[in-house]
């Protein structure tokens, strides 16, 4: 659709510079400066009070990467992020397709679905924790009636399932909004033409709707993976604190626990740098390989 855009061009260099200056300033202060600090700090082992620092070069990275629990955390993070992304996008797409077909009451339906997005991750964590509390949780109680003994305090799979559901839940609303908008932007005439040609719902979805929805899907994929990496901290902290054992210790939780529980700022900074690299790589990969398959 690029050729349809109207391009506005400025003469000279000063006005455009002035216009992007606020954005550049904000990026520099809130992104480049802290990122630079993290890189700098990752080369030292400082004492918590900032009284002394010892240069260790890449020692913090060596220490981290030789720790098999840290390496295991990569796998945990990958499993967690993929599950959160798949669950939140899958459910959202399903709900959006249903809402798109609604004729009456779609406004109410949409509003209700958007509500969970307003709930902060930590609060969502507490809500889900209450439902699945091993002693007083409503869901745990019903599961008990069915003969299932729910215990995410010791069962690693259940703990992972619970943090995935709690993290995906609030995200479904956000994804739903984008999917619905994407669905509604698909011209009716194309779908109707296919229907007249005898294509059933599933064929229409596979050959017309899903490809036309791919820019939205791609955007959501990038955004959701970044969400799962960075913004699910509150959920993990309130529900499992990374346990049982290390079943739900994702990378970003380890940054917190080393930095703010262990006061080991060198290791924590090195982990932030590693995260920075991973997310950059992921984004590059997504744009390079997956975007090729996206139809605009």
């Amino acid at each position: 659709m690029g050729h349809m855009e109207k391009r506005v061009t400025f003469k000279g260099i000063w006005l455009p510079l002035l216009l992007v200056l606020p954005q550049i300033l904000i990026t520099a202060i809130f992104f480049f400066y802290p990122a630079g600090q993290a890189i700098w700090q990752s080369l030292f082992i400082p004492d918590p009070f900032g009284l002394s620092m010892q240069w260790v070069g890449l020692g913090n990275f060596e220490y981290l990467l030789s720790d098999r629990y840290y390496r295991a955390s990569f796998v945990t993070t990958a499993v967690f992020s993929i599950l959160v992304t798949v669950v939140s996008m899958g459910v959202a797409l399903y709900l959006a397709i249903l809402a798109d077909r609604l004729i009456k009451g779609s406004g109410t339906y949409r509003t209700l679905l958007i509500w969970p997005y307003a709930v902060a991750p930590a609060v969502a964590g507490v809500l889900w924790l209450f439902m699945f509390n091993t002693r007083v949780g409503v869901v745990t109680w019903y599961l008990g009636l069915l003969g299932y003994d729910w215990n995410h305090v010791l069962n690693e799979g259940e703990a992972m399932g619970l943090v995935v559901v709690a993290s995906a839940w609030g995200r479904i609303s956000y994804n739903f909004l984008f999917f619905l908008a994407g669905l509604q932007a698909i011209p009716r005439s194309v779908i109707e033409a296919a229907a007249i040609d005898g294509a059933h719902f599933w064929t229409r979805f596979r050959t017309i709707v899903f490809p036309l929805l791919s820019p939205t899907t791609f955007f959501l994929l990038v955004v959701n993976i970044i969400y799962a990496f960075f913004e699910t901290f509150g959920v993990i902290h309130t529900i499992t604190s990374g346990g049982p054992q290390q079943a739900t210790t994702i990378l970003v939780y380890k940054v917190y626990s080393d930095g703010f529980v262990g006061q080991d700022l060198g290791s924590s900074a090195a982990q932030s740098v590693i995260l920075l690299v991973i997310v950059s790589l992921l984004t590059v990969i997504q744009f390079k390989y997956i975007e090729r398959r996206v139809h605009y």
Binding site: L154, G242, G243, P244, Q245, D258, V261, G262, D264
Partner: peptide
Amino acid sequence: SFDQIRGIIDEELE
């Protein structure tokens, strides 16, 4: 780092 060592002990006891 004892707060964090306790965390490790918790994990292993679990």
